[in-house]
């Protein structure tokens, strides 16, 4: 009972914060939203800083793999050839998608369960 009272009071406090954002903050949020929508419309997601960072990291990993392959050939004794590794590392795989696969599986299951119940 006390827990419910606490969570209700906390919700009210957080709602109040949300409703009382300054006009400047609201304006900045609106601009941020518009920019996000515009950039998405223009397909500029690939040029965002985080994507650049990921691309740079990917290139770094690929370079390190090539160097490791050239310097330590004996370490490459697995079933996959070094060229296979390199292909995997340089392939234009959507890293976020790889990261999200498990989440999507869960989401699909949840939605299926939800529609079954209703």
């Amino acid at each position: 009972m006390k827990d419910k009272k606490l969570t209700s009071a906390a919700k009210a406090a957080l709602n109040e914060q949300t409703e009382n954002l300054s006009s400047d903050t609201q304006q900045r949020l609106r601009l941020a939203r518009e920019q996000a929508l515009q950039r998405a419309d223009k397909g500029l997601w690939a040029h965002s800083p985080s994507w650049k960072w990921l691309s740079g990291a990917g290139a770094g990993i690929a370079l390190a793999s090539v160097i490791a392959f050239m310097i330590v050939p004996n370490l490459q004794s697995n079933s996959l050839s070094p060229l296979d590794d390199l292909e995997l590392l340089t392939a234009e795989v959507d890293l976020d998608l790889v990261d999200d696969l498990e989440f999507y599986q869960w989401l699909d299951e949840s939605l299926t369960e939800g529609s079954d119940e209703s």
Partner: peptide, 17 residues
């Protein structure tokens, strides 16, 4: 916070709209 929200909105719109 604004940067994080904008980045979140951008990713949602770009990838999952």
């Amino acid at each position: 916070a604004l940067d994080l929200v904008q980045d979140t909105m951008l990713k949602l719109v770009s990838k999952y709209s």
